[in-house]
Amino acid sequence: MRRISLWVLSTLSVLVLLFGYHTSTSGPQATGSQTSIYSSGSGSSGSGSSGSGSGSSGSSDSGASGSGSTGSSGTTPPASGSTSSGSKTVTGTVAQTRWGPVQVQLKVSNGKVTNVSVVQYPDGNGRDQEINSQALPILTEETINAQSAQIDMVSGATVTSDGYLESLQSALDQAGL
């Protein structure tokens, strides 16, 4: 089972310079574009990030074992429910999901969830399913109306119930176009 090294999990909400933070799916374009983020320990450790990545290789176990090289100072192994100075770190039970077992850890400080980290990732991730003839969008010559496109459904920026009546999808639902 994969376990991210626990000791990195207790660092939270600190601005951490990320050195060598690459996921296995990020490719070359990941370089250098980010220097600092809100970090939550596990992700910033560089090691944990390879635990997911493409996921299809099955080799991510080793990545998650955590040769973390973050410069942050969290060295306290957060036992389940540990408390220190008004903050509390609680580790959830192992949950069985459709992709495999998951274990999550939260840090709560003064009634606020300050950190979410994952102790155990599932083996699969849903992206590995066989793709049934992966389709590509076909660009229209120019933007066209829905009727001439003969479409069944509309994908767009999230339509709220308030905005629905003016939406293309609403027209489809009512008239079938």
């Binding site: 793709i131 049934n132 003839s133 992966q134 389709a135 590509l136 969008p137 076909i138 660009l139 229209t140 933007t143 066209i144 109306n145 829905a146 496109a149 003969q150 479409i151 069944d152 459904m153 509309v154 994908s155 767009g156 920026a157 939406s167 293309l168």
Partner: peptide
């Protein structure tokens, strides 16, 4: 299924169509 991708600059129109059997 024929899915129309909405034109973000003119949400009454479609910029692309994608045929999807499963996905």
């Amino acid at each position: 299924w024929r899915i129309g991708i909405e034109d973000p600059h003119d949400p009454g129109r479609v910029v692309a169509v994608v045929p999807v059997h499963n996905g």
